[in-house]
Amino acid sequence: MRKILLVIDMQNDFIDAALGSREAEAIVDAVKEKIRSYPAENVIATMDTHGENYMDTQEGRNLPVMHCIRGTHGWQLQTDVAELLRHAKIYEKPSFGSMKLAEELKKLSEKEEIELELIGLCTDICVVSNALLLKAAMPEVKISVDAACCAGVTVEKHRAALETMRSCQIHIVND
């Protein structure tokens, strides 16, 4: 069984910039330890990626905070995390979940037995979106989320997202 780690959106804007929080800053060391615990070839990452027209998008109208604009400091992965992900495949995604990531992992799951673990930011937006996309694409693949390596927009939303995922048969660890 191949166990794959998915590192979701560990970008500066979600840690200590435009949409950052103390909770996001607090998980960085745990995220680095988790990445180190996997073989490099079994680590995949995502990056929230927007253009200058972000405010004209549906997301921008509903979350009117410029963030993760391609090429900016806020868009970049946190420095230490980026170093650990230097050999990882990285999926840039224009919205919360990555359809391409789900499609490629589904193809992989048809060739070999896999298990997926998600960590990163934000629990209640991109982590839950990707976890549910993956579960829909691969209902028989074990998917887990390490709660100690995730942070939500608020503590309450983090907890609610964990409960939503738990209800959808996604395993929550370190809660």
Rank of each mutant, 00 (worst) to 15 (best):
A18L: 06
A24H: 00
V155S: 15
A88P: 02
D13W: 03
R70D: 09
D146L: 07
M47R: 15
P94E: 07
F14E: 05
L133C: 10
V127W: 01
I114P: 02
L132F: 08
L116M: 05
G152T: 01
A40L: 11
L19C: 10
V31R: 01
V7M: 06
C122E: 11
M47I: 12
A160G: 09
S129G: 07
R36Q: 15
E59W: 02
A161Q: 06
L118D: 03
K89E: 15
Q58H: 13
K34P: 01
S144A: 14
H171D: 14
L162V: 05
V65G: 08
E103N: 15
Q58W: 13
L118Q: 03
I114R: 04
G120C: 03
T49S: 15
K142L: 13
V81K: 03
T123Q: 05
C149P: 00
V155M: 13
G97T: 02
K34W: 04
A147M: 09
L84F: 05
V141G: 02
D48T: 00
A102Q: 04
G51M: 08
G20K: 04
E104T: 07
M47E: 12
M55E: 13
R159Q: 15
E23Y: 06
T123H: 02
L118Y: 03
M99T: 14
S21I: 05
D29K: 12
M138T: 09
V153P: 05
S144H: 05
P64S: 06
G97Y: 00
A147D: 04
G51N: 12
I35H: 00
E59N: 07
S129C: 07
A136I: 06
Q76A: 15
